[in-house]
Design a binder for these strands. Sequence first.
DNA 1: ACCCCTGTTCGGCG
DNA 2: CCGCCGAACAGGGG
Length: 264
Amino acid sequence: MPELAEVEFYRRQWDPGLGQKIVRAQLHARKRIFRGSNTRTLVRELTGSRYLRSFAWGKQMLFEFSGGNWIGIHLGMTGKLRTEPAGFRPEKHDHFVLQQTRHALVFRDARLFGRVRFHHGKAAPPWWRSGAPDISSDFFDRAFLNAFLDRHARAPIKTVILMQNGFAGIGNWMADEILWRAKIVPLTAAGALTAAQRTRLFRETQFVASESLRIIGPDFGDPPRNWLIHQKWKRDGVCPRHRTPLKKAMIGGRTTAWCPKCQT
DNA sequence: ACCCCTGTTCGGCG
DNA sequence: CCGCCGAACAGGGG
């Protein structure tokens, strides 16, 4: 479920606990979401620390706690963050819970494709932000986009848009939304895109990213009815512009929908 | 019962 | 090195 805008929504769900102490950390230590982290140290360090602030970059989140403690979270396919009242009892899929005096900060992930990483140190962990610029930042510009497209010149543009080190935070639904707005066939080789197509791709990537953040980020709002997302998962989905039936195919291993009339 | 899945990574193949 | 494909991860929903 989570792409950049949903990630932003989930990041905010722990806000009620900002500035408050962790009195107890509960986790299912054997689950693979904790791979690479020492969960004993994690529990020891976090207990008694204070939740200070959070950051989001693409599909990644970083939570900072006092004493130089950092938790990185990736939601995978089914991860969710939420806050429950104090005394909350973790259920089957609540693999990571931080109990505070008034709240419980909960990470739930049924399919366990997500990841929780722990880092202890003065500065943010080395794995944080090692990759692409934020789409909303000045570093995501035409030069960066061009270089990235040419580096993956032979791959279908749909596949390239899903690469997190180029399009941080873009997932399957946003990728199709962007290509539909930019009027580009998903199977087009990235290196074969014309200057005009690249301009549209750049503009629509920024538009879909910023609009999604604005609409979904605060309260999981629904994108406008004329967005492709409302059609792409229907078996009889049609183009929001003129009702032409959408085409569907597997590209880069992912279900892809596009309009054969608009996208040429 | 069966098929699908808004993510990522890995091995095998060409 | 590039890229494609399928599998794997593990479970819920239609």
